[in-house]
Amino acid sequence: HHHHHGSGALAALHAEGPLAGLPVTRSDARVLIFNEWEERKKSDPWLRLDMSDKAIFRRYPHLR
């Protein structure tokens, strides 16, 4: 159930192989992290948004 927010940013994801479903670039990863943060913020208003490279690598090590 993907609803768009204002920016309408869509992340490019790997379609197949071992990385299927994972973001292709760091900016794609940022979109995913932001979208998930927006969702989680509803139940956790104090949740901090962390889109640093460090956060991205921790989450998606293949982007190193």
Rank of each mutant, 00 (worst) to 15 (best):
D53C: 08
A12R: 14
W37N: 01
H4C: 13
Y60E: 00
V24S: 03
G17E: 04
E36G: 02
H62C: 01
K54E: 15
H4V: 09
E38C: 13
L47W: 13
H62P: 00
L47Q: 07
D50R: 05
S52T: 09
L63Q: 00
K54R: 10
S7P: 14
R59F: 05
D50V: 04
D53K: 07
I33C: 03
F34R: 09
Y60M: 00
D50W: 03
D50A: 04
H5D: 11
R58K: 15
V24A: 05
E38M: 15
H5P: 11
H5E: 12
A20R: 11
F57Y: 13
E16Y: 09
R30D: 03
I56G: 00
I56S: 00
V24G: 01
H5K: 13
L32F: 04
A11V: 11
E39V: 10
A9D: 12
H3N: 10
M51S: 05
N35S: 10
H5V: 13
E39P: 02
P23C: 01
A29I: 00
A20T: 09
D50M: 03
R40T: 06
E39Y: 07
P45F: 05
P18D: 07
L10E: 15
L32E: 04
A9L: 13
V24F: 05
S27M: 15
S7V: 12
E38Q: 15
L49T: 04
G8N: 11
R48F: 07
N35K: 14
D44V: 04
L32N: 02
R40A: 13
D44A: 05
E39C: 09
P45G: 07
Y60H: 01
L19W: 06
A12C: 14
R59S: 06
H3G: 09
D28I: 02
D44P: 05
A29D: 00
L47P: 06
A20S: 08
I56W: 01
I56R: 00
A15L: 12
I56Y: 01
D28E: 03
T25I: 01
R26V: 14
A12S: 14
L10Y: 07
L63F: 03
H3Q: 10
L22H: 03
A29M: 00
R26F: 11
L63R: 00
P45K: 08
R48A: 11
L63E: 00
A20E: 09
I33F: 05
Y60K: 00
R58Y: 10
K42M: 08
E38W: 15
H2Q: 10
V24H: 04
P45Q: 09
E16D: 14
N35R: 13
E38F: 15
D50T: 03
L49A: 04
R64T: 09
M51G: 02
A29Y: 00
L47V: 13
L63Y: 00
D28F: 03
D50K: 03
K41C: 09
L19R: 03
S27T: 11
K41S: 11
R58G: 12
K54N: 13
L32R: 02
L32V: 09
K54P: 07
I33Q: 02
H4L: 09
R58T: 14
K54C: 11
I33S: 01
N35W: 14
H62I: 01
L19N: 07
L32D: 01
P45A: 07
H1K: 11
F57D: 15
F57N: 14
P18V: 07
R30V: 06
M51A: 06
S52Q: 02
A15N: 12
A12E: 15
L22P: 01
E38N: 14
L13N: 03
R59L: 10
H62A: 15
E16L: 06
L13T: 09
L47C: 10
R64Y: 10
S27V: 08
M51N: 05
L47D: 05
G21P: 02
A20V: 13
V31S: 08
E39Q: 10
K41W: 08
A55D: 05
R64D: 09
H1R: 09
K54Y: 09
A29P: 00
S52A: 03
G17F: 03
D53H: 06
A12G: 08
A9C: 13
L49C: 06
H4M: 11
A29V: 01
R58H: 14
Y60A: 01
H5A: 11
P23K: 00
H2G: 10
L13Y: 04
W37C: 01
R64N: 09
V31E: 05
P61M: 01
A15K: 13
R58P: 02
L10W: 06
P61Q: 02
H14S: 02
P23H: 00
H4E: 08
I33M: 12
N35I: 15
M51L: 14
P23N: 00
H5Y: 13
A20K: 15
W37D: 00
S7C: 14
W46H: 12
A20I: 11
P18E: 08
L19Y: 11
K42R: 10
R26G: 05
A55N: 11
G8W: 06
E16S: 13
V31M: 13
E38S: 14
W37G: 01
R40Q: 12
L63A: 00
R40G: 12
T25H: 06
K54D: 15
L32C: 07
R59Q: 10
L19G: 02
E36L: 06
H14D: 02
W37Y: 08
L63T: 01
P23G: 00
A12H: 13
R58A: 15
A11D: 03
G17R: 01
K41N: 09
A9K: 14
W46M: 14
H62V: 00
L47F: 15
K54H: 10
R64L: 13
A11C: 05
G17Q: 03
A9S: 15
R26C: 09
L22V: 03
G21R: 03
S52H: 02
Y60C: 01
G6H: 13
A11K: 03
L19F: 13
A20F: 11
G6T: 13
R40N: 13
H14N: 04
R59G: 02
P61E: 04
G17T: 02
R30K: 10
I56F: 01
P45Y: 06
W46L: 14
H2A: 09
H3T: 11
P23M: 00
H1Y: 07
A29C: 01
G8F: 08
K41D: 05
P18G: 05
G21L: 03
N35L: 15
I56K: 00
D53R: 07
V24Q: 07
I33E: 01
H62Q: 01
D28V: 04
R30L: 09
S52N: 03
L63G: 00
R40C: 07
P45L: 06
D53A: 07
S43A: 12
L49N: 02
N35Y: 13
L49I: 06
K42V: 10
H3F: 14
R48W: 07
L22D: 02
L49E: 01
I56C: 02
V24R: 11
D44R: 05
H2Y: 12
I33W: 01
W46Q: 15
W46Y: 15
D50C: 06
A11L: 06
G17Y: 03
A9H: 14
H1V: 12
R26Q: 07
L10K: 15
A12K: 14
K42F: 07
R40W: 06
L32S: 03
L63H: 00
L10Q: 15
D50N: 06
A55S: 06
R48V: 14
H2I: 15
L47M: 09
E36Y: 04
M51K: 02
G8M: 09
Y60D: 00
P45N: 07
S43V: 14
E36K: 03
E36S: 04
S52W: 01
A20D: 04
K42D: 09
L13V: 12
R30M: 13
E36D: 10
P23F: 00
A15F: 08
I33P: 00
H4P: 11
H1Q: 12
S43E: 14
P23D: 00
G17H: 03
K41H: 11
W37H: 05
L22G: 01
R40S: 10
D44W: 07
S43P: 04
P61S: 02
A29F: 00
P18A: 07
T25Q: 05
A20Q: 14
R58D: 15
T25K: 05
H2F: 12
H2D: 10
L13F: 05
H14V: 04
K42Y: 07
E39H: 09
A55E: 15
G8R: 10
W37S: 02
H4R: 13
R59A: 09
A15Y: 08
D28M: 04
A12Y: 09
D50P: 02
W37E: 01
R59K: 12
A55K: 06
L19P: 02
A20M: 13
L32I: 14
A12D: 11
R26T: 12
L10D: 14
D28G: 05
A29E: 01
S27H: 15
H3W: 10
L10T: 15
L19Q: 05
R26Y: 09
D28Q: 05
D53G: 05
H4I: 09
